[in-house]
Amino acid sequence: MSLDFIDWALVRDLLSWFLFLLGSAAVVIGALGIVRFPDFFSRLHGAGITDTAGAELIVFAMMLQAPNWIVLAKLIFIAAFFGLTSPVATHAIAHAAWMVGFKPMQGAALRYKGDEGE
């Protein structure tokens, strides 16, 4: 069975187009989440989309376009670095806010706990 009839460069370009569009969409959606969500703790989740889906998909798309293996290795390094540090940074921000006394909105009514009587 021969696969010579497949234009591999075209397949690669289509695949990176797909990943780039998906990743760009995820980055924009994450930023929209940061702007639109009502309180600080829910905004963290918007940043989560940018950091995971957005960043990794765009890096994967760049990997497919890498002209040589040094570039590929650097992209793998960036992907691993994002995967290891972005949750640490998000947790550090959330934990710092929690320690200072921020309380999240809770429940579908989006009320701060303890604010009912005010």
Binding site: V28, G30, A31, I34, G54
Partner: peptide
Amino acid sequence: AIFIAMSLALVRAFVGPSLYDRVLAGNS
């Protein structure tokens, strides 16, 4: 797309309202 997302993050960084929102926007 990244430019659009960056300007959205900047909006959050300017609007705030709290310090941690700004740090989050800056990190993003």
